[in-house]
């Protein structure tokens, strides 16, 4: 065996994954993020079982208990028709997460695929795809989504479609940028010299190098999709009542400001809580995987 004077420090010997995980768990902000995200997912799944008043999720009316301030009976108060706000928030997370899964489930794979193609093949493919993403970038996403949902009827599916149509471009641009820098590395050419096919180079050599950036971006995006959906319904163009939706609840509660402050503020904070969770987790992942977004 050859003797080489170079040695590796113990830190380098440690496996990539173990080191990364330790970095994530030593980051208190990231742990808070994990706790928040897990709590939201659990709330959404278990809403019918843990909500204090599961029947308040729909078009329930109880005028005797309308506009109740937060109390032990109604931890976050009640709304203008006497429904428990906490229960409606828990059910509202179902809608939010459904939106996240629907939008990112389509937008991320589509964006990644187009980004890979544009960055790898260049030429007309690159020009075409990047022009399209630039067009999409120029229009305020909220305005575009508003226009689309206005032309269609406002509901969850249409919000999903409108947001997806705009969202893939961000992943496309991100992956495109990463691919451009990865393609310049010698290992791509080395794979070509080894006779590898385009398919192998794209998905086995290049894509794994984009995985870190994609996962960070997707995590951060989950929060912003929730924000986006809530903004749409806040403006009256998202999920329609009586389905409990956080944005709709804020808009409805805003009419009773400032006296019945909890009716707008509580669901508002629920949105903030979700975005905060995904953001902290995304930032933690970013530090852990050491990527730039």
């Amino acid at each position: 065996m050859s003797v080489e004077t170079e040695t590796l420090s113990p830190a380098e010997e440690l496996s990539n994954f173990g080191r990364a995980r330790r970095r994530l768990l030593s980051n208190p902000a990231a742990i808070i993020g994990i706790v928040i995200v897990v709590s939201i997912v659990l709330a959404a799944i278990l809403a019918p079982y843990i909500a204090p008043y599961p029947n308040h999720a729909g078009s329930f009316v109880d005028f005797r208990h309308r506009h109740n301030a937060p109390s032990l009976e109604h931890l976050l108060g009640t709304d203008n028709v006497g429904r428990d706000i906490l229960s409606r928030i828990l059910f509202g997370y179902r809608v939010s997460l459904l939106l996240v899964v629907g939008v990112l489930g389509v937008a991320v794979p589509a964006g990644v695929l187009f980004g890979l193609l544009a960055g790898y093949f260049g030429g007309i493919v690159e020009t075409g795809i990047m022009w399209l993403t630039n067009v999409m970038l120029a229009v305020p996403p909220l305005v575009m989504a508003l226009a689309i949902t206005a032309v269609l009827t406002p509901d969850l599916i249409h919000s999903m479609i409108a947001i997806t149509v705009l969202w893939w471009t961000w992943h496309c641009r991100l992956v495109y940028r990463v691919v451009k820098s990865v393609v310049a590395e010698d290992f791509v050419e080395a794979a070509r010299v080894a006779g590898a096919s385009h398919l192998h180079i794209l998905f086995r050599e290049i894509l794994p190098n984009c995985a870190a950036a994609i996962s960070v971006k997707t995590t951060l995006d989950a929060g912003f999709v929730i924000l986006f959906g809530a903004s749409l319904s806040f403006l009256g163009l998202g999920v329609q009542p009586p389905t409990p939706d956080l944005g709709t609840m804020v808009a409805a509660g805003a009419q009773f400001l400032p006296e019945m402050w909890w009716e707008a503020v509580m669901p508002g904070f629920a949105v903030l809580y979700a975005i905060l969770g995904f953001n902290l987790l995304g930032d933690g992942l970013r530090d852990m995987l050491d990527v730039e977004i």
Binding site: D186, A191, V193, A194, A196, S197, H200, E205, P208, A211
Partner: peptide
């Protein structure tokens, strides 16, 4: 020239396979 996401064996397998 070595892909950071592939082990030595995976890297060496590419010319063998193709």
């Amino acid at each position: 020239s070595l892909n950071p996401r592939r082990t030595v064996a995976e890297t060496l397998a590419v010319p063998l396979a193709f």
